[in-house]
Design a binder for these strands. Sequence first.
DNA 1: GGTCGAATAGTGTATATACACGTCTTATGG
DNA 2: CCATAAGACGTGTATATACACTATTCGACC
Lengths: 143, 143
Amino acid sequence: MAKVPSPLDCACFNTRKTARVLGQVYDRALEPSGLKNTQFTALAVADAYDGISITDLSKAMEIERTTLTRNLKLLERDGLVKVGPGADGRSKTVILTAKGKRRLDGALPLWRQAHERMLREFGAKRWKSVQKELDAMRDRLHP
Amino acid sequence: MAKVPSPLDCACFNTRKTARVLGQVYDRALEPSGLKNTQFTALAVADAYDGISITDLSKAMEIERTTLTRNLKLLERDGLVKVGPGADGRSKTVILTAKGKRRLDGALPLWRQAHERMLREFGAKRWKSVQKELDAMRDRLHP
DNA sequence: GGTCGAATAGTGTATATACACGTCTTATGG
DNA sequence: CCATAAGACGTGTATATACACTATTCGACC
C-alpha cells in the first residue's frame, strides 16, 4: 500500500515557502541598509568576483541571466554598480561603485547579525548540513 | 580563529536559489497543464480545504495574503477558482470551479511524475529529512 | 575574407512577491 | 447604543522571476 504523494510534500512548494519566509526575515534585517536580500547577494558576489560578467554572475547566483539583467538595472539606477564593457565586445563587466561598496559594507553587519541569529536559533551545524543538502538537490535536479 | 561568515552561506540566498531552480524544474514539468507551480499548489490546497478563506489559504501556503489575492485574481480570470462571499461579511471563500478541478486533475499526474523523479534522483528518505528541516527552519525564524 | 554557429546581452510579456495604506465589517466594552 | 479595537480584504507601488525572441559579436572553417 504505497501512499499517494501529496502536493503538500512538493519540493518546490516547500523550498519556495521557506525562501519566502527567509526573504522576509532577511529583508527586515537589511532594511536599514536600503538593500533587499537579492540585491545584497548580488553586490556581495559581484564584490567577491570583481569585474565578473553578467552571465558568470548569473551562474554564480544560479539565477536567470535575464532576471539578473533587470536586477542589475535597479542597482545601476541607484548608482551601486556600474555595468561596463567587458574584455569581449559581447560581454559586460559588473563593477561595484564606491557608493555600492559603502552600501555593501553598511549592510554586512546587518546581515551578519541576522545570520548569527539564524545559526543560534536553528543551529550552525544543522544549517551547514541543510545547505549541503540543498546544494546536492540543485546538482541533481538542475533543469 | 572564528571564521568570518560569508554571504555565500546566507540561508536566504541558498534556499532562494534552490527554490528558483526547483521552480524551473517543476514549471517545465507542469507546462502541458498550463499551470505554474504556485498556481498548482494554490489549487491543490484550495481543493483540500474546500471553501477556505483567503487569509487561511495564505497561512496554509505561508504566503503573504496580499500576494495570494493577486495570484487568485489570475486563477479567477482563467475560471479556475471562484472567490465568493464567506460566512462572515468580511471574509471570502475560495472554491475550485469544475474547470479548476479538471485542470488540477490534469496537472496532478505531471506533478507526480516530477515528484517521483525528484525522489528517485535525490532520495525519498533524504527529501523527507530535508523537508522536516525546512519546516523547523520556518518555525524558528518566522518573522 | 565571407559564412555560419556559438556566445553574450537586452526586451516584451507575464507571473510572483511583499509592504504600507485604506475600507468595510465584526466584536467588545462602556 | 456607540465608540473603538480587531479582523479580513483590496490597491498602489516596487522588486523579483523566467521564457521566448532579437540583436550583436566572436571564432572557426572553407
